[in-house]
């Protein structure tokens, strides 16, 4: 088990290094880092001096080394657009994004798995047809349109919920939360639903497909032939086997929620990392772009690791494989 996790950790480090390398390339070669730092009337000497000071004259690998060391300490330089340290910008906005992502992940997971199992077990029911059709519409609706639609109905017409922002927030240490105030919670509802819908349909369709696949296997037929109750078959045997592949893909889907929040945050003017990123892309604010890339990769790697460990717990075949040193 430990060897298995150690191996996965190694792979994660490699992935992070590759992403850091791409981020470094973006950081170093897109646009001119100096042009943004120095004033319009800087002299050639100023340029040379700045080059020397920032280490831009050093060999490529030394620069990359410094980039990685800085990144490990959370240093990604200063935003061209906002003239603030990137790490500070991201940390300030992180709580908003994480609260949104977690809330919508829970919605997507709970409803996605439930509806997936339901539609797989009741394959011929009318309700299944309705749910499947709705899910297809859900996949075809761009997230931003869902957001606009929800705003129009619940904020503009019904005036039940706020249409933008986080509402009142409370500062706990460096974490600024909107979960403890009524207006904060009300503000979370529409963005969380918007963000969850796409993942929800994906998870639902995946669970349904896997479950139907499992229900067709020999061991389910054999379980039937042994006269087990359909409850034991569906929820004991089938569901657990369904979970093996579902865990991976679902985990990765939820990881992507963080990055997917870009759109939702823009529609609802949610002050998170995603909207920061979109504004940075529009303004070619390279340090923020590079830092965001590394940040998303980190989230991906962590979730991947959790998924691997879960997998390990669920599937006995893997445990044996790891024991024999594979």
């Amino acid at each position: 088990m430990l060897a298995f996790i150690a191996r996965r950790l190694m792979q994660s480090v490699i992935v992070m290094l590759v992403v850091a390398f791409i981020a470094f390339l973006v950081f170093r070669y897109v646009g001119d880092p100096l042009a943004n730092l120095l004033s319009q009337d800087a002299t050639m000497a100023d340029y040379e001096e700045a080059r020397e000071r920032l280490g831009l004259n050093q060999p490529f690998y030394v620069q990359f080394y410094h980039f990685v060391v800085n990144a490990l300490q959370g240093q990604f330089g200063v935003s061209y657009r906002l003239q603030q340290p990137v790490s500070q910008l991201i940390l300030e906005r992180l709580p908003a994004t994480i609260e949104l992502a977690v809330a919508s992940s829970i919605i997507a997971l709970v409803f996605g798995v439930f509806l997936g199992v339901y539609t797989a077990l009741k394959q011929r029911a009318f309700s299944t047809g309705v749910i499947m059709t709705l899910s297809l519409i859900g996949v075809s609706l761009p997230t931003f349109l869902i957001g606009i639609g929800l705003i129009y109905v619940f904020a503009v017409e019904l005036k039940w919920l706020p249409s933008f922002g986080r509402g009142e927030v409370i500062q706990i240490g460096w974490w600024r939360t909107g979960l403890l105030t009524q207006s904060g919670l009300r503000s979370l509802i529409l963005p969380a639903i918007t963000l969850s819908l796409f993942q929800l349909t994906l998870i639902m369709r995946l669970v349904r497909a896997e479950m139907m696949e499992v229900l067709r296997t020999d061991y389910i037929r054999f379980a039937r032939a042994r006269g087990l109750s359909s409850r034991a078959i569906n929820f004991g045997h089938a569901l657990k086997n369904t979970m093996v592949p579902v865990i991976t893909i679902t985990g990765l889907q939820l990881g992507s929620v963080i990055a997917f929040a870009i759109i939702t945050e823009t529609v609802f003017q949610w002050p998170g990392v995603g909207s920061l990123f979109v504004n940075s892309v529009a303004a070619v604010d390279v340090p923020v772009m590079a830092a965001y890339l590394v940040f998303v990769a980190l989230v991906f790697v962590i979730i991947n690791l959790i998924v691997d460990i879960l997998y390990f717990i669920v599937d006995p075949r893997l445990r044996d494989g790891a024991k024999s040193g594979r």
Binding site: T217, D218, Y219, A225, R226, V244, D315
Partner: peptide
Amino acid sequence: RGKRIGMVFQDPLTSLNPLY
């Protein structure tokens, strides 16, 4: 099923639930 009629399938590799 199971109580009065039992059944054996062809492929033993797929007849048993791998997770239990």
